[in-house]
Design a protein around this nucleic acid. Structure first.
Lengths: 111, 111
DNA sequence: TCTTTGTATGCGCATATGCGGATATGCTTG
DNA sequence: CAAGCATATCCGCATATGCGCATACAAAGA
């Protein structure tokens, strides 16, 4: 996408899948919780307020997308952010959204 | 997400929606086609190979997400990229994917 | 007004996805 | 082996979404 020639269908599919992995609030919440360092499933359940089954599923999705890493230690499984570009992605989106909201607020307030 | 304090549920929803807008190959193809400048719906239909109805719907999705802008001129409607951060987003994802694929290929080839 | 052209939308179908509840698997301890 | 804890997976449901087809809407011209 950075180059002049268009991406292949397969590449577009991969990019779309990556964005899709980030397109769920609960998964973003998990990622957010993991910005401070690795956590176990139970800790993530507590941090996000979701059910254990649902959290486990989302963690699987994020791990399969190579966004999180998985480390087993005894009974517990610890997840951590594996792709450092995720933080920048979220920063970019947040910044863009802030601009939009500011503009909308300005449009409402400024007449 | 760049800050220490977690985002609100509403903010997470907004971020997720933004990622979701980019989570479809056909929409990525449209964005890709528009990197070179604005195009009409018909031109985008020709460029992507989709049906007119489908393209129109995707364009609506991208416009509602404030990713594209819409300009009407006579019978035609021209769409253009409205959010400059989209290019960087796609670059980031593509770069990350390339690293992953390279690593996987290396793992396969190197034993 | 009627027609033509470009774009948007309503409808129905097929599929994908998130979710909760129950249950299975894996690991540790007694 | 039995028990208990942490995690993963199966099942079914509800909803969301992409798609094609047909059609409606909007603008320009005869």
């Amino acid at each position: 996408m950075a180059k002049k020639n268009p991406l292949s269908d397969e590449a577009l599919e991969l990019v779309a899948r990556r964005f899709a992995a980030l397109a769920e609030p609960m998964r973003l919440r998990l990622i957010q919780a993991l910005f401070d360092g690795e956590l176990s499933v139970n800790e993530l359940v507590a941090a996000t307020g979701g059910t254990q089954a649902n959290i486990s599923r989302h963690l699987q999705t994020l791990t399969q997308a190579h966004i999180l890493s998985r480390r087993k230690e005894g009974l517990q499984v610890f997840y951590a952010i594996a792709d450092p570009s995720i933080a920048k992605l979220c920063e970019l989106v947040c910044g863009s959204l802030e601009k939009q909201l500011t503009r909308q607020a300005g449009a409402l307030g400024g007449g």
